[in-house]
Design a protein around this nucleic acid. Structure first.
Lengths: 334, 334
DNA sequence: ACGGGCGATGTAATCGATTACATTCTAAAG
DNA sequence: CTTTAGAATGTAATCGATTACATCGCCCGT
C-alpha cells in the first residue's frame, strides 16, 4: 500500500497538495492536478482512513447492535436503518452480541474510540447506567427493544396494548382457556409487556393463567412445540394460544396438528411481528405488524440529527401505531 | 474523552510510562503503576484505537459481506464464522451490500485502510480481477457463493450434484413434467449450478424445460407463487417443482393449494438450504442441508490462518458433503 | 572506589493523513 | 513601474497512540 508521501514524491509536490487534490479542498492548478492524479493512478494510492480519522471527527459509519441476525424480523429494522443511513452517505455495521455483555462492550469500544459515529441498539444487555453514560457522550438510540428508565431515545410500539388486542380476538371468539407461550429472554421490554397484557387480561376476567412464563428456554420452534405439548398435557382444555412470535406460533400449530387438533377449528393461535413465518404456512397466522422498517428509519433519522447536531424532528420517546393482521388462525367457521 | 497525555500529566509521568502500564509491556514500579492507574480511573481514560491502529498492524476485526441478512440461511453461516472468530478473540462486522457494487466498495475500503484484518465474502458483486487483487494483498475467503476462476479460497458444496440428487427424487417418484423456479440473482454460482443440474437432467431424458430461468425477478415468496402460477397456466400438467430455496418452495406449495392441488399427492416440491421454512409449514419440505455452520467455521479458520500467517489446515478450494433431507413434500402415498 | 548490569523512566521518532499559516508567483490595477 | 490581491504551493504542527533508544540511579562484585 502506498502512502500520500510516495504520491507526493512521485508527483514532485508536497503532501499538502496531494491531500488537496484527493479532497478537492483548495485551489490546485490544472497541470499539478494532472500530475498528482497520474501518480495516484500509477501507485494505486488509496488514502489510509486511520490517518484521516485521527484528524477528522466523523467516520460516516454507525453500529447496529442486536442479539443475532437469525431473527428475520430484525432484518426489516436494519433495512429501515440502512435506508436513512444511505441517504446520509452513512454505512452500517451490524454486530451480533448473542446477549453477551462482554462482546457488546467490545463493539461499544468502537464507539468510544471514534471508529463509528453512533450506535443503534436493537436489543442490549448492558445496564441502564451504562447506556445513560454512553448517551450523554455519544449519539445513541434504541429501537423496538428499549430500557424504560433512561434518558436515551427509543422508537417502538405499545407492546402492552397490542398484546391486549390479540387477547381480545381470542376472547371474542369465545375462548376462555388461553395459553401464553414464550421462549428466549424475559429481560426485554417486549416480552415483559406481552406477558403483562396476557396476565392483566386474564386476571380481569378471573381466568387462570396457562403458561411457562417466566421460565426461560432457548429460542425457537422446537421449544415452542414442546412447551405447547407440556401445557396441553397439564391443561387439555386449552383452546387458544398467544405465542410471542410467529415462529413460535408455527411450533404451537404443529404440536396441535400432531395431537389431531386443527387450527382454527379446534384451537386458535396468534403470533407476533408479522414475519414471513406468519404467512408461508397453512393456516397462516394472525399477527402484529410493528412497521419495523419505519421504526428503523425513524431511529436512524434521530441518530443522524444527533450526529449532525441538528434539532430532532420527532419526539425521541416514540411509540408508533401498529396493525393487527387477522388471518386464518383466528377465523371462525373454517 | 481523555488522552494518554492527560493521564501522563495527572500521574506526573511520561506518556511512555502510561502506555507501558496500559499494555503491561515493560518494567514499571509498583508505586508508579498505582499512580498511573489512579489517574486512569479518575479521568475514565479509554485508549483511542485510532492512534493505536496507526502504529499496529492488526485490528482483531473481520468483515463479512453478504447481500442482506434477511435470508435466515446466511445467519447460520455467520454463526459458524463467529464461533471461530471468537475463539481467536476476533470480532465480526456484518455488512449488507444489497448487491450494490458501490456499497461493497465502501466496505472494502475498510479492508484497504486496515480497519479490519480480513474479509469473508458470502456473496459478492465485484469482478474476478478485483477479488484477485484483494486476495493478493489481504486475507480473503469466499463461503457458499464464490467466483470460480480466481485464486481466492472458497468453502462450499457441490450445488450441481445436489441439484441432480433432488431431480432424482422427483424423477424416481414418477414425475416427468418438472418445473424449475428461481427468483433473485442468476449471477451467483449456486443459481447457475442448480439450473445446470436441472437442465442437464431433463435434457439427458429428452424432457422439456419448464422454467422462468434465467428471467430475473425480485426475491421472495410472492414472486415464486406468481411464477408457479404462470408455469401452471402454460404447462397445466406439471406435477413437480424444483424451487431454488425453501421460501420459494413455500410459495409454490401455496399456489398449488390455491389451485386445489395438494402436496405431495397431486404434485411434489423440493426446496434448498434446509432453513426453518422447510419444516415450519405443512407439508414440510424436502431440502438440502449445506452444513452452513461448518462452512462458515471452515472459512473463518482459513482466514485466521491467513491473518496469522500460519499454514492453512485444509484445502482452500473445498466442497464439503451435503445431505438431502427428505420430507413430506416428496413422500409417496400420503 | 570504580565499573558493569539492570531496573525504571523519559525523549522523541513514527504511523498517514489534515490544515493553519507562510511563502512564492502572477497578473491586473493604479 | 510599482503595488497588491489572490492563486498555487510548501512547511510544519497536529491527531493519540507505540516503541526504539537514551538516560539515570542504584546495587553489587572485585
Amino acid at each position: 500500500m502506498s502512502t500520500i508521501e510516495q504520491v507526493a514524491l512521485l508527483a514532485k509536490v508536497s503532501v499538502a497538495t496531494v491531500s488537496r487534490v484527493v479532497n478537492n479542498s483548495a485551489y490546485v492548478s490544472e497541470t499539478t492536478r494532472d500530475r498528482v492524479e497520474q501518480a495516484i493512478k500509477k501507485l494505486n494510492y488509496q488514502p489510509n482512513a486511520l490517518g484521516k480519522l485521527l484528524r477528522k471527527e466523523t467516520t460516516s459509519m454507525v453500529l447496529v447492535l442486536l442479539h443475532s441476525v437469525d431473527n428475520p424480523f430484525f432484518a426489516t429494522i436494519v433495512q429501515g436503518i440502512e435506508k436513512v443511513a444511505h441517504e446520509n452517505d452513512y454505512n452500517v455495521l451490524i454486530c451480533n452480541t448473542y446477549g453477551d455483555t462482554e462482546r457488546e462492550q467490545h463493539y461499544l469500544k468502537m464507539l468510544r474510540n471514534h471508529l463509528v459515529d453512533g450506535v443503534v441498539f436493537i436489543s442490549n444487555t448492558c445496564t441502564s447506567d451504562e447506556v445513560n453514560y454512553l448517551n450523554a457522550t455519544f449519539p445513541v438510540v434504541q429501537v423496538v427493544e428499549y430500557l424504560t428508565d433512561i434518558d436515551a431515545a427509543h422508537y417502538s410500539i405499545d407492546f402492552y396494548q397490542a398484546g391486549r388486542d390479540l387477547m381480545d380476538i381470542l376472547y371474542k371468539n369465545g375462548h376462555r382457556s388461553i395459553g401464553f407461550i414464550h421462549t428466549g429472554s424475559t429481560e426485554i421490554v417486549s416480552s415483559k409487556e406481552k406477558f403483562r397484557a396476557y396476565k392483566d387480561y386474564m386476571k380481569e376476567r378471573r381466568l387462570p393463567l396457562i403458561t411457562n412464563y417466566p421460565d426461560e428456554c432457548l429460542f425457537g420452534y422446537a421449544n415452542a412445540k414442546k412447551i405447547a405439548g407440556d401445557l396441553l398435557d397439564k391443561h387439555p382444555k386449552t383452546t387458544a394460544f398467544f405465542a410471542t412470535s410467529d415462529l413460535l406460533a408455527c411450533g404451537v400449530i404443529d404440536e396441535l396438528n400432531c395431537r389431531g387438533k386443527s387450527v382454527p377449528k379446534d384451537a386458535m393461535v396468534v403470533g407476533f411481528d408479522n414475519t414471513s413465518y406468519a404467512y408461508v404456512g397453512k393456516p397462516n397466522i394472525t399477527s402484529v405488524e410493528l412497521n419495523s422498517f419505519q421504526l428503523g428509519a425513524m431511529a436512524m433519522e434521530y441518530l443522524m440529527s444527533k450526529i449532525k447536531n441538528k434539532p430532532v424532528a420527532h419526539n425521541n420517546k416514540c411509540l408508533i401505531p401498529y396493525q393487527i393482521i387477522e388471518r386464518e388462525s383466528t377465523k371462525k367457521g373454517q
